[in-house]
Design a protein around this nucleic acid. Sequence first.
RNA 1: UGGGGUGUAGCCAAGUGGUAAGGCAGCGGGUUUUGAUCCCGUCAUUCGCAGGUUCGAAUCCUGCCACCCCAGCCA
Length: 566
Amino acid sequence: MNDTAGLDFIRQIIADDNASGKHDGRVCTRFPPEPNGYLHIGHAKAVCLNFGIALENSGQCFLRFDDTNPLKEEQHFADAIERDVHWLGFDWEDRLTHASDYYQQFYDCAVKLIEAGKAFVDEQTADEIRATRGTLTEPGKNSPYRDRPVADNLDLFKRMRAGEFPDGVYLLRAKIDMASPNMNMRDPAIYRIRHASHQRTGDEWPIYPMYDFAHPISDALEGITHSLCTLEFEDHRPLYDWVLDNLDLPYRPRQIEFSRLNVAYMITSKRKLAELIEQGQVGGWDDPRMPTIAGLRRRGYPPAALRDFCERVGVTKKDHLIEMALLENCVRENLNEHAPRAMAVLNPLKLVLTNYPADQTELMTAANHPNRPELGKRDLPFSGELWIERDDFMEDAPKKFFRLKPGGEVRLRNAYIVRCDEVVKSDSGEVTELRCSYDPDTRSGLPGASRKVKGTIHWVSAPHAISAPVRLYDRLFTIPRPDMDKDGRDFKEFLNPESLQEKTDAQLEPALADAMAGDVFQFERVGYFVVDQEHSQPGAPVFNRVVTLRDSWAKQEKAALQALEK
RNA sequence: UGGGGUGUAGCCAAGUGGUAAGGCAGCGGGUUUUGAUCCCGUCAUUCGCAGGUUCGAAUCCUGCCACCCCAGCCA
């Protein structure tokens, strides 16, 4: 019986339960978001875990909206959550539920508890309750209403439900133990009066159950076998079990906690993200720099890469901080496989071929993917006037610089080898044009093409190029944990001023004009770029950089620079 | 200083008394018309620390240390 080897601790528990027949071999999970905001990368881990486990075990997973607090919830959040879970690649089929579907059952359960003498109606104020709860080291005090007769409790609770009392004057509490070292067991609130219109049940209910009461019951009613949640609910488990122990429900779910996902240079606090939006630091919840699913989608991260990431980070109870490099590796790995190649120049520098016939145009053939011939080829117009990347030319180049330098040769990808004969500068000394000669025998595909030069650079034909806005995105913050500063500095002090850089004069190969929103390309030697879903028009794409290519040259240069500083 | 958790490489993570998997990052090399991809190699004499048990300990015991969570009528 060594078949649990290598599984994470939750999957081991499930495998053991399956082996012992604990739930008749049934596996049922749920992803239970409150519809009070947008899903983010941390939720993605929970989605992948819950739906993934169900899939692996031929089980089922519910998408359940935990809508027990109408003050914070909105239908459009629920709609966005459904869209995001689907986009991540998961399907709940007919298992879309709401805590609010069970309001009557919750109420009936509460009545049962009251009848059993296990719950009472308190009429202390919120302040009084807080004051008598005790502290971490001191026990609390019993409410003066704790021993109210069952009949009175029943009467009051029914009148609470009937809407006879204003908010806050009565509260249904579980009767557990005010001296418990676990604060959650000190007669926790289970039902409060809230005269608020609910997005689904309208004004039907003036009272709403608390999470700690509603959650275990919802789980039990749905036949959830393993109720997975994050570590901060560990202290709630005794209460979760207490509710199940004291009610007669059809199933007995088990709560298991795992550590929430933390990714370096990202924050997931709803309040803080909202602050960035309010201040205009980012464009909205779907800004490509946001850690929201909507943001990641618009950034061009493939859902499969996100799933891969969630799998690779593992499931444990340790606090952790995942490096961004792992996420980016997952994205690159996916995109390298799937993204067709294209040529685009972000910082154009004019290159003129002095010996190329004037007004001549040739069609060069370029593979759409170097390792996947089945993805086909395309034609690239070539002429005597080209754009190349400014970084691909250096006047005083170091030995290891493989690109263009005065008098040097370089291969134009999919085209000819060219030599730099003359550097034209403006009055201010800025390089404005390179005058080069090409070697006609070295055209790609010709026998002369076998001549080797050290470098290959990308280009686009100036008369044929299209121009498109290109946005270069980078991490939103400059430090790994902007929200955990030791000196208490505000997270906004660590905003990366270079998280967005807009290129307005990028020159792209003409075929890119027809790119569709959501399409992702590798701009060769530059990075992966997605056609923005919001701002692109047919025939007028706007590109977002998903992630750069790995760049060992840049790394070398950076290292050399750092060595120089020392 | 109450209760609940967690400590294995730079970052994750397996390991369940028999001699430290794997991934990411890093480093070195090879292939390459992308300084990409791909390929090869390298990367913990030691598991928070200190004792103990044992032929044998990351795994068991004792003590200590560090970090995280909890005092909403939020979830």
